[in-house]
């Protein structure tokens, strides 16, 4: 097979000419490869974007925690100061600060409106904790809080993070599965087109066999043709897909889920592998179809 691949790259004008041009199957291969490559660009963009999203969610949520202090009015400030002292000496805590009344009001505003009087409500005090890259020992911190500030509850976002990261991971897997399905569908289509071309050229193949052509020689002529057509179609489809991704409208903050859908930085190089992969799929698919058909001929 390696020899075939090298021969394919080198090309052979005379060998190429022994198989007549096949109009319909040629157009079908180019069109289908282009369409599949176009879809593959979007599947790849989705997969890369959800991968980034999962990583970002995981990192952002993992590096921040919240401590909620629910205590009688006279105890809130005392326990808040106690918690801040504990946090200042806790390894793995980069910074910690108590949210101001205005910040807490802003958090509740979507539910209660702008005229909320916090002093009339038993709203707990919130402390925003930012972790270092190493993170802190959550269980140890909980024990210290329980001892020195009994009204403090640590929420390290684990129960939020897990389903979000799992969802993003599933989306990423879905993107990869779409790529695999596109590859499979492309292979099936090329097998059909190549089989049709081989059947249409049964007489040519018979003549070639009778003058001493080996199967590998006959197959190579078809394989080269279908591989190059598939690569050309996939190249056009990939460029069109990349242009479409580049022209996607920028989402606003309200569409934060879509933020980052597309390619970023070196990620723009990833779709350039699609034509080569399409060529590899076409090479294997046509080779399979050719040898299967040739075995049925004398």
């Amino acid at each position: 097979m390696l020899g075939d691949l090298l021969a394919l790259l080198a090309g052979d004008r005379r060998a190429d000419r022994v198989v007549p041009p096949t109009g319909f199957t040629a157009r079908l291969t180019v069109f289908a490869s282009a369409a599949m490559a176009f879809l593959a660009v979007f599947a790849l963009a989705l997969s890369l974007a959800t991968g980034r999203l999962a990583e970002r969610w995981s990192e952002e949520l993992a590096r921040s925690s919240t401590i909620r202090i629910s205590a009688p009015p006279g105890q809130v400030e005392v326990q808040t100061q106690a918690v801040l002292r504990i946090l200042a000496t806790t390894p793995g805590v980069a910074s910690a600060r108590a949210l101001s009344a205005a910040e807490q009001r802003a958090l509740l505003e979507p539910w209660f409106g702008p005229d909320l009087d916090l002093s009339a409500l038993p709203v707990p005090q919130l402390i925003d904790v930012v972790e270092t890259a190493e993170g802190f020992d959550a269980e140890g911190l909980r024990l210290r809080l329980a001892a020195e500030a009994p009204g403090a509850v640590l929420d390290d976002h684990t129960r939020w993070r897990r389903p979000l990261v799992a969802a993003a991971g599933r989306l990423e897997a879905l993107g990869l599965m779409s790529l695999a399905l596109i590859g499979g569908a492309t292979a099936a289509m090329i097998v059909l087109a190549a089989s049709a071309a081989l059947a249409a050229n049964a007489r040519v193949i018979r003549v070639l066999r009778l003058v001493g052509a080996r199967d590998v020689y006959i197959a190579r002529a078809f394989v080269r043709r279908f591989t190059l057509r598939s690569m050309a179609g996939a190249g056009a489809g990939t460029l069109a897909g990349m242009a479409a991704v580049a022209l996607l409208p920028e989402p606003g903050p309200e569409a934060s889920f879509l933020t980052g859908l597309g390619f970023v930085g070196a990620g723009w190089l990833a779709p350039l592998a699609i034509p080569a992969l399409a060529g590899a799929v076409a090479f294997a698919a046509t080779r399979f179809a050719a040898f299967r058909t040739l075995k049925g001929l004398t």
Binding site: R209, L210, V211, G212, A213, R214, D215, V216, K295
Partner: peptide, 9 residues
């Protein structure tokens, strides 16, 4: 099949 092809040569 290859041997037959060579024979036909």
């Amino acid at each position: 099949r290859d041997a037959i092809a060579r024979l036909r040569q």
